[in-house]
Design a protein around this nucleic acid. Structure first.
Length: 492
RNA sequence: CGGGGUGUGGCGCAGUUGGCUAGCGCAUCUGCUUUGGGAGCAGAGGGUCGUGUGUUCGAGUCACAUCACCCCGACCA
């Protein structure tokens, strides 16, 4: 008997970890804090990448690639930026190894010290802006909308698979504009692209909003975010889009000549989502049987399991399955026939549930006689036996139904865990039970910090689409006047 | 960096106040029977007990040192 995964209610973290390992998504690598993404997990990531990449290109972005290493001097030009990342940087100091003179393996060759240390990129603003300097001279060179898919390294003290790893995969878009308005519009457009992706592909309801100054990206004037709620009620920042103003242009001296012949600094944005989205997907939808994948992102959307005693039965069933598979693949449904001979059906059922495959079809001798198939859906675990006749159309609409149902379920869960709160005593109690609280805030970093110190809760965002309440009131903590409510939560 | 914990076949663990040939479950391999919700029986293979030093007739077990990992904090655009 294979191991079961820990129940969510017993230990949420353990459940999450079990699920990642046993659904074969990823594992801890030999390098501390780093992760091996296994083929099944990577297939999901690839699917996310493809969809996002198409969306970026539709807004005019082009892909490019910039170096992994950033000279230390570049990195230190923007003061706020360096302060935000300095404590978690990996630094390359040497370029050669040599045999240990004492015969114990290899050591760093002290002769091979680099004149200037290289920082392994924690994000690429600095090296990209150093490059953009050479690309931009005229208003005709703008805008530049470049994206790169790459890895970055942040030397976190404590890591968790997908949610916070020392090295992670992401995309980072870096744009350059001639006006502040255009750059702001770009930042807003991209956060909406992320929100659309989260909602319609990941089946993840998210709140779009501005970060408070405390939570802003280091070096940004404004950070837009999509915030999701996990099943333990904690918040997960799933994507960000930053309006960087002219900070990086000034640090790297990037100017252009405008239509009037004036030298101006360029306006910038950057935006990114990472493999953390995988963590969001797992935590938002998974259940006690394992992963639940929205059909739009499932590498395998339909799995077929034959049930048989004799080889002749198997070949007859598989023949039938191949025919259905063909009909499903024509309109783009991905199908796998699990004809592994060494495993029993019950084992396969459990395994594909663990991996989150949305639909399972089982066919055995009984079905062969009656011309039926057993259809099982992962999201509700319901199964029904239906005629093979017209099954393809049914499965197509079932996949849409599952996609919608997963979203609705997550939406309903969040809805039942978001509430307005106007009492500090209530706040302290409720915030610990895993809720988003819509509260008045006086707009000062000081108050936010005091609230964080006392409760660990932070302002997840100042919402711009859902949950906007601009009723006037007084700050829940300080009692000072407030212009509207913000979303408080405890974050991953 | 502070507090706590764990290192024993691939994985998960037991191993008492030192003692006899280091054990169990899962996984693996072979054979037979099975196959509509994680199969059963029989047999087989697989171990520097994290590392080092010490105490002892004798160390997985005790002492000291050291390394690694995990959990709780601090940290986390």
């Amino acid at each position: 008997m294979a191991d079961q995964i820990t129940k969510r209610s017993e230990n949420y973290s353990q459940w999450y970890n079990d699920l990642v390992l046993k659904a074969d998504l990823a594992e801890q690598s030999a390098v501390r804090g780093c992760m091996v993404i296994k083929p099944y997990g990577y297939a999901i990531w690839e699917k996310m990448q493809r969809i996002l990449d198409d969306k970026f290109k539709a807004t005019g972005a082009q892909n490019a690639y910039f170096p992994l290493f950033i000279p230390k001097s570049f990195f230190s030009r923007e003061a706020e930026h360096v302060a935000g990342f300095a404590k978690e940087c990996a630094v390359v100091t040497h370029h050669r190894l040599m045999n240990d003179p004492d015969g114990k393996g290899v050591v760093v060759d002290p002769e091979a010290k680099l004149e200037e240390e290289l920082i392994v990129r924690p994000t690429s603003e600095t090296i990209i802006w150093n490059t953009y300097k050479n690309w931009i001279t005229s208003w005709r060179d703008l805008p530049i909308i470049c994206n790169q898919w790459c890895n970055v390294v942040r030397w976190e003290m404590r890591t968790r698979l997908f949610l916070r790893t020392a090295e992670f995969l992401w995309q980072e878009g870096h744009t350059a504009h001639s006006t502040a308005e255009e750059a702001q519009a770009e930042a807003e457009r991209m956060v909406q692209v992320y929100a659309d992706f989260a909602r319609n592909y990941m089946a993840l309801p998210v709140i779009v909003g501005h970060k408070s100054p405390n939570e802003r990206f280091a070096g940004a004037l404004d950070t837009l975010t999509i915030e999701a709620m996990m099943q333990d009620g904690k918040a997960l920042q799933a994507g960000t889009s930053h309006f960087l103003g002219q900070n990086f242009a000034k640090s790297f001296d990037v100017t252009f000549t405008d239509k009037e012949g004036q030298q101006q600094y360029v306006w910038a944005t950057s935006w990114g989502v990472s493999t953390r989205l995988m963590g969001a997907l797992i935590m938002a939808h998974g259940d006690d049987n394992g992963l639940v994948l929205p059909p739009a992102l499932a590498p395998i959307q339909v799995v077929m399991v034959p049930i048989y005693r004799k080889p002749e039965e198997l070949s007859a069933i598989v023949e039938k399955m191949v025919a259905i598979k063909k009909n499903l693949e024509a309109p783009g449904v991905s199908v796998k026939i699990d004809d592994r001979d060494n495993l029993r059906p019950g084992f396969k059922f459990a395994e594909w549930e663990l991996k989150g495959v949305p639909v399972r079809l089982a066919m055995g001798p009984r079905d062969m006689e009656s011309g039926t198939v057993e259809v099982h859906r992962r999201d509700t675990l319901e199964k029904e036996t239906m005629s093979i006749e017209g099954i393809e159309a049914h499965i197509k609409s079932l996949l849409d139904d599952i996609q919608k149902n997963i979203y609705d379920k997550a939406f309903a869960f969040r809805a039942s865990n978001v509430e307005k709160c106007d009492s500090w005593e209530e706040f302290k109690e409720k915030i610990q039970t895993g809720k988003f609280l819509l509260c008045h805030w006086d707009g000062t970093p000081e108050t936010e910090q005091l609230i964080k110190d006392e409760t660990k809760a932070t302002i997840r965002c100042i919402p711009v689409d859902s949950f906007v309440c601009d009723d006037k009131g007084v700050d829940i903590y300080s009692g000072k006047p407030s212009q509207g409510r913000v979303v408080f939560g405890i974050a991953y």
